[in-house]
């Protein structure tokens, strides 16, 4: 098992590449969801505000 993880002494490079890829992909997903939520929220408050004005 340890031998497999070591990747023939290239473990640090291989695992950091895959780890970085995972981090960036997850960050893209989270950022996308957060942005959608905040835009949805902003649009909602705007419409509510306009509604109460009229």
């Amino acid at each position: 098992m340890n031998e497999m993880l070591a990747m023939g002494n290239y473990g640090a490079y291989v695992w950091s590449s895959f780890g970085l890829t995972l981090i960036v992909l997850v960050a893209c997903v989270i950022q996308g969801i957060n942005r959608h939520k905040s835009v949805f929220h902003d649009v909602k408050t705007r419409i509510r505000a306009m509604e109460s004005e009229s």
Partner: peptide, 20 residues
């Protein structure tokens, strides 16, 4: 990462190809 054989020149470092 685990089933593909290591490259005969680059060893296991070639596995970075799968994300690069």
């Amino acid at each position: 990462l685990f089933f593909a054989p290591a490259d005969y020149q680059q060893g296991d470092a070639f596995r970075i190809i799968y994300v690069h």
